[in-house]
Design a binder for these strands. Sequence first.
DNA 1: GTTAGCATGTAAGGAGTTACATGATTTT
DNA 2: AAAATCATGTAACTCCTTACATGCTAAC
Lengths: 202, 202
Amino acid sequence: MAKRSGVLELAVLGLLNDSPLHGYELRKRLNAVLGTFRAISYGSLYPCLKELVGRGWIAEDGPADLGVGPALSSRRNKIVYKLTADGKEQLAELLGHAGPASWEDEGFGVHFAFFAQTDAAVRMQILEGRRSRLEERREGVRAALVRTRERLDGYTLELQKHGLESVEREVRWLSELIDSERRGNPLAVTTTSSAPTPAQDR
Amino acid sequence: MAKRSGVLELAVLGLLNDSPLHGYELRKRLNAVLGTFRAISYGSLYPCLKELVGRGWIAEDGPADLGVGPALSSRRNKIVYKLTADGKEQLAELLGHAGPASWEDEGFGVHFAFFAQTDAAVRMQILEGRRSRLEERREGVRAALVRTRERLDGYTLELQKHGLESVEREVRWLSELIDSERRGNPLAVTTTSSAPTPAQDR
DNA sequence: GTTAGCATGTAAGGAGTTACATGATTTT
DNA sequence: AAAATCATGTAACTCCTTACATGCTAAC
């Protein structure tokens, strides 16, 4: 009954593709990936995990410490989740093509974070889509500034100008990345199915 | 039965304190004030206006063109809203003191936009509160970067670095504003009760 | 006279948060 | 043995969006 499409699901799938994780740890990485802002709460995360299990995209992994642990299998209330075959397919589908979901504000960050698992051509389309989107916005703000310059007080004006500079800075950043990619200097080697470094547990 | 506390209400009150407006026009200014992002929809705005009328903070203004219009009072399906005495009181209360609501992400922008209607001491507290908040965040990101530098691929790393630079830039901006205020150079003259420039209608 | 933009609203639902409830493990 | 932090979850609620429904006015 839930739709729960969106950023959170993608981020969970993407992180679990690197290595199996339990909820608590997942949340911490999520808050890093989702970018300085957005602190996902457990009230969002656990229902999302439940939903993904229900769809068969992730599964509870049996306690991964098969007899190697401290004494016998202690501390097992942790539930470790891993990506299923269906989940990998779904992740590939989500990362496989560019579109508004990948370049709008909500969404760009996560898609970018998983660029190492994304095709080079798609990467380029997303970067260019994002840049276009921001250029539109920049023109909008500029026009608004010209239109309303007089009736604005100093603070409102300063806020608008700062917002404009932020967008301009973002566009420059994207342009540098695009140039870099175009010259054949990607920031990481594409790994369609990453050999999961088993940097697991804390 | 709605609580509807938050940014939208404040923005509406603040804008209506400058001049009476109808919903459609209000929305456009809202989207400028709320800062490049957040395009408020009518589905949010109109219920909010209703609620504020219910509380007696704003009121429908009689058609402001008393016999001066084109012929007789044409085009009156517009509903012009203005701030009531209670609304002004409420606005003064909301702008009257610094606190988390005024320096957290959601909230800072609007409070800043109405700095011209805010006491100089409160302005300073908000700017400093915001800066502290961002400095905390900056340290968090830096620590996370040091901790996880190895296990991150080039794109994730770039994203983190870009996020960090954004925060650093924001802190510099705030520091400049704080210095400016401290030297007694505010960006606008404080107007507790602004004589409303009747730049009305399109 | 039809398209584009102005203007006002409602109903349903999505995406998340807060507050609560519970308990195990580690550190001091 | 107390406090911190790890760990998992649920229920209620908030704020906002989307999609719909309606009609006026200006421009082409």
